[in-house]
């Protein structure tokens, strides 16, 4: 590796990323239906059994309740999804919806009517309280 090769490689890196963008590859994922959300959660979390799911109004996030006391939070990341399994997550409801702490730096926001958001938050707490076994096996 010499400096010409290094400079050439860096130029190629930027060019290829630019071409990927110009070809409009990737795109923004959306979660279309609760059934989709349940399937994504079951795919990504080994052993997870979805009971039901709530998707937010613009499809940019979903909450999936499992049958064993945990919940899965799904959000799109480019053309893929980020899925986090949580127990008893901290949440906050506001006019724009429900904000849930996932352990990542920024909480995930589900866009929902405020009343729905508050009810969903209460259900998160109830789910955690209900689950006394906390068994992950």
């Amino acid at each position: 590796m010499n400096w010409w090769l290094a400079a050439g490689s860096l130029a190629a890196v930027l060019m290829l990323a630019g071409i990927a963008w110009a070809l409009r590859l990737g795109g923004e994922n959306r979660i279309a239906t609760p059934a989709d959300a349940s399937r994504i959660a079951e795919d990504w979390i080994a052993g997870f059994e979805a009971h039901d799911a709530v998707i937010c109004s613009n499809g940019s996030g979903a909450l999936v309740f499992g049958t064993r006391g945990s919940v899965a939070l799904i959000r799109p990341s480019g053309a893929r999804f980020i899925v986090r399994e949580m127990r008893n997550p901290r949440w906050r409801s506001s006019e724009s919806g429900l904000e849930i702490e996932t352990g990542d730096r920024t909480p995930v926001r589900l866009y929902l009517p405020q009343a729905e958001a508050a009810a969903l938050g209460a259900r998160l707490d109830a789910t955690a309280d209900n689950d006394v076994s906390n068994s992950r096996a």
Partner: peptide
Amino acid sequence: KPISSSSVPGPEAAPPRA
């Protein structure tokens, strides 16, 4: 089983535990 609800059921509808 039906996996769908876009409305929010109350806590009493919390999932049964296996």
